[in-house]
Design a protein around this nucleic acid. Structure first.
Lengths: 211, 211
DNA sequence: GTTCGTTTGTGATTGATTTCACAAGCAAAG
DNA sequence: CTTTGCTTGTGAAATCAATCACAAACGAAC
């Protein structure tokens, strides 16, 4: 049902299936086969079945999976059956882009606090929030009951910010700063490094045809 | 030396080593061991040696790797020994954040064109560039000799944009739209899906302590 | 109730990636 | 010149992930 270890990539595929299920439900389908899910998700049917089987047995042999029920189950598995409160550190352009992006709210993530250390930015009103001084992070994070942090600061400040987030009780961090953060065991860290993505494209273009 | 297939993750680690090497060079070190690189990169020494050995033999036994020379070689391997011209599609907040982010230029990536389909945005001056109509993509891309595309549009337009980019001669695409793009063989595609990252954090928080 | 076409769930297999472990090589010291 | 202390480069082993292949199960048709 819920085994010891699910691979990072399997979890990401679950997110993918959830989107495909949304589309199928919108299209009015009531059941889907692993083949349907696989085709739309760009994976193999066996992979879909294996991924789902880690968490239970949701399908009917000969029929497939009930769309609506599977969607609910995957939502639950991913921990999206509730809303999450997110703290955003860094009120720059990327921070603004993330803050005003509707996709997060749609998936159950609410930005509950924004921080910066620039006096020009502190006090600015962003939607229904005010940019807070990074110095008051601990207090604000606890009163806002923030559970996740997003780091959108320059690389030099990132480690310090991460330390403060963790001190404030945050256990999951999404880091956009192009630097490798050290976090203690038990803290979940995901990195999004745009430079690395571009560099991987450059590598592919450079090596694609025996060049 | 340069084998048939290097894994995606190995390439990403090379990017990482490059950053660590930058730091070491800045700190004035002339040689590093695989252990040094591993520690700062958060991997194992054996992994470092294996990754590098795919491309040649850069170290001296008993000594380690010459920082400056290895940095040059890795730069070359990743295809960063030249500048790359990038086209940005989507002049929204995320597009702006990427455009004004200095890290890309620093690594050799120049945004050479920006596109949007919103009449209010078309014609806006961004730095030294003007936002172009997406309709004129083919012409602009070719005259600007753009080699990579970054998609920062809503999900619904993303596939259409990708098709146009490919028709304009682009062979590598970095997609930020939360949708799975279909591209023909020979086109390199990387996806950055912020919703999936947050969902993977939600999963981790939900399942960490047998919850 | 039996047969038929379909699709799941899963042990077995294959494949990929990471780690191990050690011979080979280098510099410095004696 | 030999020994000593490190560190690389790499085949072998181990771990991890993806795919295969097939028995079991279901609904529909008759």
């Amino acid at each position: 049902m819920c085994p010891a270890k699910i691979s990072e990539s399997a979890v990401r595929r679950l997110s993918l299936y959830l989107r495909v299920l949304d589309a199928f439900e919108l299209a009015g389908k009531t059941t889907v086969s692993s083949g349907d899910l696989a085709e739309r998700g760009g994976v193999t049917p066996a992979q879909v079945r294996k991924d789902l089987s880690h968490f239970g047995s949701f399908g009917k042999r000969g029929l497939g999976y009930p769309v609506s029920e599977l969607r609910e189950r995957v939502t639950e598995i991913l921990g999206l059956g509730r809303r999450w409160r997110v703290g955003l550190v860094g009120a720059g352009k990327l921070g603004a882009a993330l803050f005003f992006y509707d996709g997060f709210r749609g998936q159950g993530f609410d930005v509950a606090a924004i921080f910066d250390n620039d006096p020009d930015k502190i006090g600015q009103r962003w939607g229904r929030l005010v940019v807070e001084d990074i110095e008051s992070m601990d207090r604000v994070m606890r009163t806002s009951q923030v559970e996740m942090g997003i780091i959108v600061t320059p690389a030099v400040s990132a480690q310090q910010v991460a330390d403060r987030l963790i001190a404030s009780g945050v256990e999951a961090i999404l880091n956009f700063a192009p630097t490798r953060l050290q976090v203690p065991p038990g803290i979940t860290l995901r990195n999004v490094n745009l430079e690395i993505e571009l560099e991987s494209l450059a590598f592919a273009l450079t090596h694609e045809n025996g060049a």
